[in-house]
Design a binder for these strands. Structure first.
Length: 551
RNA sequence: GGCCGGUUGGUGAAGCGGCUUAACACACAUGCCUUUCACGCAUGCAUUCACGGGUCCGAAUCCCGUACCGGUCACCA
């Protein structure tokens, strides 16, 4: 025991605070029964992907609904991957989707909360105190094996069909006498600290995952590295220290961590701490030539949150989609409670899927269309203006030049019980309505999509007669359409569709064909929103102007 | 290769031993409505829950085996 103590003091001469000191410094949280304390703990690698949003949304919703705490912890122990401004990227990126934290860093230099620091690179002494404690008890040891030696070991084990890893007899440094270790350290040899695992692979341990249920796995017997050569802890050890000291009740994380659960439980037991509850969530998957795989930020553009931002998909639609992935019964509830907020739905762990869901962009688009259709014209206008200001300055200028005009345009067949659902994102506004702007209509290379009536003379005949005799901007929709029928009668087209269907031979065409001529003449497109409203918004002069382009 | 997890339609899924002739939603198809499209409405879309065996009066639901898919086995998280 004395040798272990000496070893510990030689490795960590400056660490004076003990595990007990930290236990006192970070007391149990005083929260109501059942309150969930959980966290989002990303590495600041400068990129927010949809899986990260899903994980953070899940954590925040459970914390909120249980009146618990949701905090941000930055896991920057991998100094090679950490980037500048990574923290701001995470905070601002999530904030855009209304995911916010009760505690944790608030920007690169500040933080709030009593359980910090919340940035792992600033917690070095805390980890060291915990590691020192283990060394003093003979439960951790310095390992001097080089990368080459480790590679050899792996090769040997593979050849012999043994389990791979630093364990049992293969764990040479485990058997080094403390005196020898001290000597090698004093000689300046490089080392890492490994856990002296008390586990036996032959023993099974069981634990309960909140999402997966009972799981049985062999005990961990691998002497994993707990402190790297650079003095920083590995993920596993930081997880133990941080989640214990920050008094986390639920660890919500991706299921890639499931295999290291025996290790984590072992770590907590070695310190006599109660482990948190674990909730392993499945990753979002994607079809890929016949197979499925995890959504990948390298291969899949839809994985990056910036993808939705650039398209102008409302954040509400993205969140709605993630809510349906989180709890499959959410959608049914939402369809009946469209006026409520996502948070009003009571999310539960047992409704969480325990196998990976295929990411369904179609479904997201549908949610987005439905959501946009429910917006008031003015609200949509504001959102679009913001979007185009960022992504299409030219269109932004046209769009905002006459605010009322654009709002009227957006309001076609909107703010009714059954609004149009044709806009999947803000970016679609330009695609659907560009012809409403003279600057675009007059400069575009127009492709008139005339359908049944294509003869130029006939088209002009219809347009002329319509303008001279039948068009009156004061008419409401039904009066206007009544006149359209009169126009049809005069020119030999069927004004009554039923009569036309009964005997198509008797007519040159029907009222739909004639309406189509006017629609295409005004917009060049065969598919548009309500024609009467379009004309009302364009006004007589511009209608005439557009008709004359066809002369 | 070891360990772990998963497998219900084109997709997300409900289901947790009899109420299932497998909910709901997306997608798709057809029809209706209709001046186009979109909306809306109606109908269709798994005789079957990966496969094989077992338990049971009864199984998508419980057990065992097989297959396939996924994850993991770093001084990365």
């Amino acid at each position: 025991m004395e040798e272990y103590k000496r070893l510990a003091n030689i490795i960590f001469p400056d660490i004076t605070l003990t595990v007990e000191d930290y236990e006192k410094k970070y007391p149990a949280r005083n929260l109501k029964d059942g309150a969930i304390v959980t966290r989002y703990a990303p590495s600041p690698t400068g990129f927010i992907h949809i899986g990260a949003l899903l994980a953070s949304f899940t954590g925040s919703i459970f914390a909120k609904q249980s009146e618990g705490v949701f905090y941000l912890r930055i896991e920057d122990t991998d100094t090679k991957r950490t980037i500048d401004d990574g923290i701001n990227t995470i905070i601002n990126g999530l904030k855009e989707f209304d995911v916010t934290f009760d505690e944790g860093p608030t920007d690169e230099n500040n933080e709030s909360g009593n359980y910090g620091p919340y940035i792992q690179s600033q917690r070095g002494d805390i980890y060291k105190a915990f590691i020192k404690h283990l060394i003093m008890e003979g439960k951790a040891y310095p390992c001097f094996c080089s990368e080459e030696e480790m590679a050899e070991l792996r090769e040997y084990q593979t050849k012999k069909k043994m389990r791979i890893g630093y364990y049992g007899k293969s764990a040479k440094c485990r058997y080094l006498a403390p005196e020898e270790a001290i000597e090698r350290i004093e000689n300046g040899e490089k080392y890492v600290i490994r856990l002296k695992s008390p586990g036996n692979f032959e023993n099974k341990i069981r634990f309960n995952d909140i999402i997966r249920g009972q799981i049985e796995m062999p005990e961990n017997d691998i002497d994993i590295v707990i402190m790297k050569g650079d003095g920083l802890p590995t993920y596993h050890f930081a997880h133990l220290v941080d989640d214990h000291l920050m008094r986390t009740t639920h660890v919500i994380r991706g299921d890639e961590w499931l295999p290291s659960l025996p290790l984590h439980v072992q770590l907590f037991e070695m310190f006599g701490f109660e482990p948190p509850k674990y909730c392993h969530i499945s990753p979002l998957m994607k079809n890929d030539n016949g197979g499925v795989r995890k959504l990948s930020k390298r291969k899949d553009p839809e994985c990056a949150m910036s993808y939705y931002h650039e398209l102008g998909v409302p954040k509400e639609a993205v969140m709605l989609y993630l809510a349906t992935v989180t709890n499959s019964n959410f959608e049914e509830w939402y369809l009946q409670n469209k006026d409520k907020e996502i948070e009003d739905f009571k999310f539960t762990f047992d409704k969480m899927n325990n196998s990976g869901a295929l990411f369904d962009l179609d479904k997201l688009t549908n949610l987005s269309k439905t959501f946009i259709s429910s917006l008031k014209a003015e609200e949509l206008y504001d959102r679009c203006a913001k979007y185009y200001e960022e992504y299409d300055k030219d269109f932004y200028n046209l769009f905002t030049k006459d605010k009322k005009y654009s709002i009227d345009m957006l309001n076609i067949e909107r703010e009714t019980p059954k609004p149009r659902k044709d806009l999947g994102c803000y970016g679609d506004v330009k695609k659907e309505f560009w012809y409403m702007y003279d600057e675009l209509f007059n400069s575009a290379e127009l492709n008139y999509e005339f359908k049944n009536i294509t003869d130029k003379e006939e088209i002009n005949k219809i347009l002329d007669l319509y303008m001279e005799k039948y068009y009156d901007p004061k008419d409401d929709n039904s009066v206007w359409f009544g006149k359209m029928k009169e126009l049809c009668d005069e020119l030999g087209y069927a004004s009554d569709m039923k009569a036309y269907k009964k005997n198509p031979e008797a007519f040159k065409g029907n009222v739909a064909d004639v309406s189509m001529v006017i629609r295409v003449a005004l917009t060049s497109k065969s598919m548009t929103p309500d024609l009467h409203e379009i004309m009302a918004i364009l006004g007589v002069e511009r209608i005439k102007e557009r008709f004359s382009k066809l002369k």
